[in-house]
Design a protein around this nucleic acid. Structure first.
Lengths: 348, 348
DNA sequence: CTGAAAGCGCTTACAG
DNA sequence: CTGAAAGCGCTTACAG
């Protein structure tokens, strides 16, 4: 600060060069760790950098080199636990290697507004650097599809139906396996079948969680009820729960996430059904509060933060042209059996 | 895309100039809405821009002009509901005026790691543009304090004890008023007093929520129990709830946020106390699931998204040198009375 | 091992 | 109303 209150222009490589008695190209070499600098010269430059508090201007770096040590995360939402955790994981990994992280929220989760999604993708592309698209919902899937070829991008996606080719830089958690495990847990308790309240799938096809649930039912020879369409939040779970509560044959309900499960439990309570006495309920994600609900919620923990870190690692590999990192890191889901699941009535 | 799979260099203002038959300075004038361009010239340039798909390079803009239509949000966390909602509000407002938004997570919420906080502030400053610091916790407060003078910054803070001077570009929700209202609600139900489980305060001094709670107790001539220190999450609420449950005189508990309240309710349940039959519990924030808990949670809704929009509006005013926007927008908290609060035992 | 030149894609004065 | 020059702070070849 000078006396007028304006920020002092920070030192440039030319200032450092003058102070160190070298040309500014040499300064550039030092800050880029070029091996061809005499140690004594390097030391003088380093001392000048330190003395002047020089920090390399990232804007100039980006313009001159065409690379911009930055990643933009495109997501439909920042408040849902899973999305927010992925973002946190990305930021953590990015910070470790001095990358900036930007956020772009996709306007409409139902992807009705195609133009808005495309606009966000263009903005992100303009920002330079790489792109990570959270493609759990229609808007995200559309955004991923709208990324122009040639732009470095990683998609955080639902478990693909079949292993994608090597040209698909995607990461995911094994939702199918997770759904399979919870469903088997509920069936093992003695339930005749398990009903399912689905989160909106990212595509028109059946979602990965739905697939895993169905697989478990089929292997057990259990009846296969139609999934109930939910939304992302507790309100959708509540509505679905009220519908399911009308059917006295329903004794076990798997929900596409913990918020839905919470809404379902509320609906069951309102209609006088006890959990887990009359109906067992299980969720997905292990949100922070799920262990403290009454009853505490049986769920599957997915490592979203780790998923975010993996997404960034993959992108970083692409951007830095390093050896292609293992393209499809998959974290293992963990079943957490709590109070909300138990044997069906009459089998206690 | 060309056949080799590389992205085609996008059009520059020189390309547009050539196509339109003008100099590139004229193109610059057109994209900057300069009034001194002949309409017919403008039309030709606009046509060329459209045809070539020209998009202004924001990096070059930033380097040449020294301004960077960008804001970096510094926060301790992206997953807590309040923090995430503020971020969402900022992004929404920023997008409306084509600003990029970056995110920096402050390493340690307890601000023990002073160096890490300072490093994040430097990084954010290097990114250019403005800064919004969420200063609800010690790390955020420290970050806000570490911002070098001259850098455009807006702080999202707890309700200040006294109205700050005009040189403090701060925004807040009226937490004190909110706490005051919930406490009065509980007292009006007939409770002798209201206990308080506090969120960590941003400073060593008493937090705004604590102040509002105390004010209501004093006005009512109610006993003033010591606040119980909680954390941000349900685990802290659970621990605090177990302690409070030991005291049979406790009939009403106000919690610093909904997650704490959820943990408190769980602890009361575990120790055999009914809510609201024996103990009333109220929270703060109106998280999305709070209405669907059993019992549903009495709480105060705070408009975090609106707070984020206000923070950005204030910063935008500073950056664009426009008329100083009303410096301290305050949204009005809304009391939501639900099932978790009722009359004390014996006064039903 | 080090320096001088050209350029990244824009903007900001300065001319006319 | 429009054009030619200089420069933002770096990097990338190109010389020596």
């Amino acid at each position: 600060m000078n006396v007028t209150g304006h920020t002092r222009r920070s030192a440039s490589i030319r200032d450092v060069a003058t102070a160190a008695g070298v040309s500014y190209q040499t300064v550039s070499r030092v800050i880029n760790d070029s091996p061809s600098v005499k140690p004594s010269t390097r030391d003088r430059v380093l001392a000048a950098i330190d003395e002047l508090g020089f920090r390399r201007n990232s804007t100039a770096l980006a313009l001159a080199s065409g690379r911009s040590r930055a990643v933009t995360v495109l997501t439909s939402n920042t408040t849902h636990y899973g999305y927010a955790s992925i973002l946190q994981g990305i930021e953590e990994a990015a910070r470790a290697v001095s990358y900036d992280v930007g956020v772009g929220v996709l306007e409409s989760a139902d992807a009705a507004d195609e133009a808005a999604v495309a606009a966000q993708v263009r903005r992100a592309a303009d920002a330079g650097g790489g792109l990570i698209v959270i493609a759990y919902d229609p808007a995200g899937v559309r955004a991923l599809g709208a990324v122009p070829a040639g732009l470095p991008v990683v998609g955080v996606v639902e478990t693909p139906a079949s292993p994608p080719g090597g040209d698909r830089p995607w990461v995911w958690t094994d939702d199918r396996e997770a759904a399979y495990e919870v469903t088997r847990h509920l069936l093992a308790l003695g339930h005749e079948t398990v009903h399912y309240v689905a989160i909106p799938s990212s595509t028109r096809r059946t979602g990965a969680r739905t697939t895993g649930w169905l697989q478990a039912l089929r292997e057990a020879g259990a009846p296969e009820p139609r999934p109930v369409q939910g939304s992302w939040g507790p309100a959708g779970g509540h509505a679905a729960g009220l519908r399911l509560a009308k059917d006295p044959g329903v004794t076990a309900i798997l929900c596409g996430n913990d918020d839905l499960a919470l809404g379902v439990i509320r609906a069951l309570h309102e209609t006088g059904r006890t959990v887990p006495g009359e109906v067992s309920v299980a969720g997905f994600d292990d949100a922070p509060h799920s262990a403290y609900l009454t009853p505490s919620l049986t769920t599957v923990r997915l490592d979203f933060t780790g998923l975010g870190r993996s997404a960034f690692a993959l992108l970083h590999g692409v951007l830095e042209d390093s050896a292609p990192i293992a393209p499809h890191p998959v974290s293992v889901p963990e079943l957490l059996v709590r109070e909300s699941s138990g044997p069906p009535p009459g089998r206690r």
